[in-house]
Design a protein around this nucleic acid. Structure first.
Lengths: 233, 233
DNA sequence: CGAATAGTTGACGGACTTCAAATCTTGTGG
DNA sequence: CCACAAGATTTGAAGTCCGTCAACTATTCG
């Protein structure tokens, strides 16, 4: 919790810097300018695995799927980057993942070189970067635990519960899923059919409600948490 | 690969510092002295989840299982720390895992405060720490991918292949497993019975040979790699 | 030597995947 | 605005894989 607290403070500080140039969303592409805002349409890529790292990104709206593709065509989505989250923080020289927008997505772009300069000037941001990297490792381990120890229901329940906490801080009971069932399956190591079935099961159990396919209402947060909860945190 | 290279250089530099005080293994416990060498017997703990971080450790021989325990009693081994690998690098204030020696294990201990001082004096070691943390995140993601996308055979094959590369750099074809079947199961999200069955299967397929339960000989490295290989790197 | 721990193997059942078909949603052109 | 097409989702049926329970064997330590 202490680490998370410091992280948020520094995120705010950094986001402040990033927001200086162009605070208002504008459709279209404005690349290679400090803190440019860019629209990535659904299914478009922001970058590919192996690309040289050029920018640090902050997701403003929508969602990015950070994934790796296997030789046999399957893919694993390592994580979804949601509004307020950062991508490409750290000292890697090339991207370890591909980044695809799962829905229309706005991102703020900060050139990596500028980010490095900021980091050098402000030692506090070094701590922030360290915290970000530690958080990333922890998130990856949470995923490994969820997938290694949980059944399909626990994985889906855990995923929805975590997602709702991230997205719906303001409205904890209802939110829009920013990705398809197939995306969720590729994240949790399940088929899209199994994801759909577990959604249906949660609906039958009166734990969630689904409206127009993408709108999820959490009816029983406590039970949802219990179903996947042992495996997170 | 570039990152790994820099990492190794800095590991050597840091290991050099750590080795200055007491270069020769000595049985028994010598705690709270710079670079003290300590023996942790099989099934003993080096620290527990939640303990305040006191030392950075380097495994000299044996192996540590870094795990978290779930409320229901199951455990997930996030990773095994093998000879030459470091544990507790980073800025966490308390341990996120418990560390148990799976076999008799020697570790070098460097007080965390001293490690911080070294890091401040030598900016290069900051890069090394960053590389370590990035490596940890990558290892966790590899685990998540292996567990999410692989069947039992792929998981075990991938695990053995990776382990042999880490342990048996000198003798790539034969090495001693430093953990039980149950430990491997807790790492890969399988039961110990399934792990045993997959070992037997690999033996029937003439991919590996097993001598005296813990000694593994890799008969067909190429095929072993192919069996779990799509899921790693 | 004997007990305790670790590992192997078999049988069975349940959980998830695969294949298939039907329904719902969304975007586009007329 | 409507119709249609493409994509996403839901649901069903059958098969495979892995977990559970159980019995047995091998190894280690006192």
């Amino acid at each position: 919790m202490q680490a998370t607290h410091g992280l948020e403070e520094n995120m705010i500080a950094m986001a402040g810097r990033m927001a200086l140039v162009r605070p208002i969303p504008e459709p279209g592409i404005i690349e290679h300018r400090p803190s440019a805002l860019r629209l990535v349409k659904a299914k478009e890529h922001l970058f590919h695995e192996g690309d040289p790292r050029q920018c640090v990104f902050e997701v403003v709206s929508g969602a990015l799927a950070l994934y790796t593709l296997l030789p046999d065509g399957r893919r694993q989505i390592a994580r979804f980057a949601l509004p307020g989250e950062f991508v490409c923080v750290g000292w890697e020289r090339s991207e370890p993942h591909s980044a695809e927008a799962t829905v229309d997505t706005f991102v703020k772009c900060l050139p990596a070189l500028l980010a490095r300069r900021i980091a050098k000037d402000a030692p506090a941001s070094l701590d922030w970067i360290g915290a970000q990297m530690a958080e990333e490792a922890r998130a990856m381990q949470d995923l490994a635990r969820l997938v290694a120890l949980g059944g399909a229901l626990e994985r889906v329940a855990g995923f929805i519960g975590r997602l709702s906490r991230k997205i719906g801080a303001a409205s904890p009971c209802s939110f829009a899923l920013p990705m398809t069932r197939a995306d969720i399956g590729d994240h949790l190591g399940l088929t899209l059919e199994t994801v759909s079935r577990e959604f249906s099961r949660l609906r039958r159990l009166r734990v969630i409600e689904i409206e127009r396919v993408t709108q999820v209402v959490i009816l029983d947060p406590a039970r949802l948490r219990r179903m996947g909860g042992d495996l997170l945190n």
